[in-house]
């Protein structure tokens, strides 16, 4: 379980997250929506410790992410993350991209790491691209590669930061399909997204962020049907 308690985040004087309280249970799929600059990406970075926090706490399976003695490198193995930019390692083949972290972080033997990598690449539908370099993959394929790379660490949680926003429209579908598949397999997911269809159909809950505040959270039917907050309704009216 991910527990976020009274989380405040500043960039200098800029107050980006203003007291977030949020729990995400095992197996849950949470979509996070909201306008640009509302702090959605920052929230994800605070969850896996890529950003420091100024107040509050993030606790993953009982471990305080930002506590002094916490081994964030160990923790992050359990918190896969996929970014807007796919960030494939350009000097490695698809297989090597996925095998790298299992080998050097998890200390698997090279053979085992490659085996894990091949399995994950097949899982996301890239079984025929094992020995291809990223520059000859499409954006959608590279994003699925990024998903496979995260999955190869066998995380219990996956964080998606607008995984489809940088893709050409015709490539969005394949990535959403992969994310949907993970959701159906029971992966715990927090998905920052602008894809309202995905948020509505796949998530258990949807959270709306507005200027650093989690303004509203609830099941998709509530958020998309009878949003309580004026801001939520306005935002949804604009994106549709």
């Amino acid at each position: 379980m991910i527990e976020i308690k009274g989380l405040h985040k500043y960039f200098g004087d800029l107050h980006v997250l203003k007291g977030i309280d949020l729990n995400v249970a095992k197996g849950e799929v949470l979509s996070v929506i909201g306008s640009s600059g509302s702090g959605k990406s920052t929230l994800l970075y605070c969850i896996n410790g890529l950003e420091e926090i100024q107040k509050g706490a993030v606790i993953v399976d009982g471990v305080d992410v930002h506590a002094k003695g916490t081994d964030v490198n160990k923790l992050r193995q359990n918190l896969g993350m996929v970014f807007q930019q796919w960030n494939s390692f350009p000097h490695l083949t698809a297989l090597e991209n996925v095998a790298l972290a299992p080998q050097i972080v998890k200390k698997h033997s090279k053979t085992d790491a490659l085996e894990i990598a091949a399995k994950q690449l097949k899982h996301v539908g890239l079984g025929d691209k094992l020995n291809v370099y990223p520059n000859s993959l499409s954006g959608g394929q590279q994003q699925r590669l990024a998903i496979a790379r995260a999955l190869a660490m066998e995380p219990e949680y996956m964080l998606f930061d607008e995984a489809t926003s940088a893709l050409d429209p015709e490539l969005v579908g394949e990535v959403l399909e992969t994310m949907r598949m993970l959701a159906e397999e029971g992966m715990t997911m927090i998905c920052v997204t602008h894809e309202m269809g995905f948020a509505r159909d796949v998530s258990d809950r949807v959270a709306y962020f507005h200027q650093g505040i989690m303004e509203e959270i609830g099941p998709p039917e509530q958020i998309f049907g009878e949003a309580q907050s004026e801001h939520t309704r306005k935002f949804l009216a604009n994106v549709r």
Binding site: L50, N73, K74, R76, F83, Q85, L100, A101, A146, M153
Partner: peptide, 19 residues
């Protein structure tokens, strides 16, 4: 972004540097 992606996989600072 690339370095954050590496770190998000659990790589340490030096593993990110090296690999």
């Amino acid at each position: 972004p690339m370095r954050r992606a590496a770190r998000s996989l659990g790589m340490s600072y030096w593993q990110d540097m090296r690999y």
